[in-house]
Structure formats: C-alpha cells, structure tokens
Amino acid sequence: MQGLIDLVDKYFSLPVIKEVLPYLLKGALFTIIFSAASEIIGIIIGLLTSIVRVTRIKVLNHLAIVYVDLFRGTPLLMQIIFIYYALPYVGINLPAPLAGIAALSINSGAYVTEIFRAGIESIDKGQMEAARSLGMSYIKAMRYVIIPQTIKRVLPPLTNEFVALIKDSSLLSVIAISELLRTAKEMMTWKLNPSSLTAAAILYLIITLPLTRYVSYMESKLKRSGV
C-alpha cells in the first residue's frame, strides 16, 4: 500500500503537474513545430526521391538508393549528432534548431521515399499507359494521373510516419532543443519529481492519438471505396 502511495506521489502528483504544465505546453508546441516542419520538408524530399527511384534515372537512382539505405539503416540519434557536431568541421555550422530540422527532415525523407515508391508502384500500369496513349508526357501523366491516386493511398502510411517522427523528435533533446521531452526532464530535476514525465507522455498521446485514429478511419474508407 505504501508503495502505491509513493508511486502516485512521485509519478502522478497533480500539484507538480499543475505547476509544470505551462512549461510543458511550450515544449509540446516546439515538438509540434519541429515535427511538422520536418515532415513537410521530408515529404518534398521523399516525393522527389521516389520519382527518381521509379523512373530509374541511372546515376540518380543509385544515389537515391544509397541515401535511403544510409538514413533508414542508422540510428536517428547518430544522424542528429553528426549533423550538429560533425558538420561544423567541414564548415557547415548549423544552429541547433536548423540542425534538428535538417536531421529529422532528411531522416523522414528516406522513409517517405519508400512510402511513395510503394504507392506509385501499386498503381495499375494501365493508368500510365492510358495517360500516355492520350499524348501526355511522362511528367504530365505523373502529375495528373499517377500522383493524385498515389496521395490517397499513401496518406495512412504517411500519417503513421508522421506519428513516428513526432516521437523521434524527442531525440532533439541531445542537441539542447527544448522540445517536450527535454522540458519534462528539466522540470523533473527542478521539482525533484518525475510527474512531469507522466504529463509529457499524456501530451504526446494527445498529439498522436487523433493522427492514429485518422489513419484507421482512412484505411477503412479506402478499403470500402476500393481505390
């Protein structure tokens, strides 16, 4: 019984949570800003790279494969550290927020590449043929016929990727960015009480739950429409 009381006192202390909440909300806002900015840039990188992948433009295709393998196959934490601490030695001196967004964008771009590539390749090849038979160039066929259909199909996996990115953005704490997790850890040492971590976990859930619900909804909708 005493154990339970201690647990509540340490991890679920309402007075502490009440006190630290304003700081945590600010941290959450940073988490959202960093994740959203990185996701947008990641989508742009991923879409372009996936088109390079499906068109199989020789040299570029190999570069794209190396890029995807490299950034999906190594820990994000390592990538963040390299971009922030190692790049200055070759004259690229990014301030922490920029280095953070760069690392997250490039990392998510690698995942988004594979999502888009799978999406594009899942479109029946008759669609491209029909578009080309109407006299559309490859680029126009992509732009008006293939990509719009791909977007619908990749929205669920893309949103899942965004959820992962939101959680991964907590790794930015290692380069002193005051996102949600780092703020919570600071509050924990300040208050000598880890309830701020619990509050942060709930805030993460509040951000990610609507997204994961949305994915389920989209998936069932896609299944029904058969697109």
Binding site: D124, G126, A130, R132, S133, L134, G135, V145, V227
Partner: peptide, 15 residues
C-alpha cells in the same frame, strides 16, 4: 499518340 486514340480491354479510366 495525340493523333492516335486507343481504347483498352481493361478501360483504364482515371478513378
């Protein structure tokens, strides 16, 4: 191709 229309067995309409 602009001058040659083609119709396919599987329709290939843009859904």
């Amino acid at each position: 191709r602009q001058r040659l229309g083609m119709v396919f067995q599987s329709f290939n309409l843009f859904p």
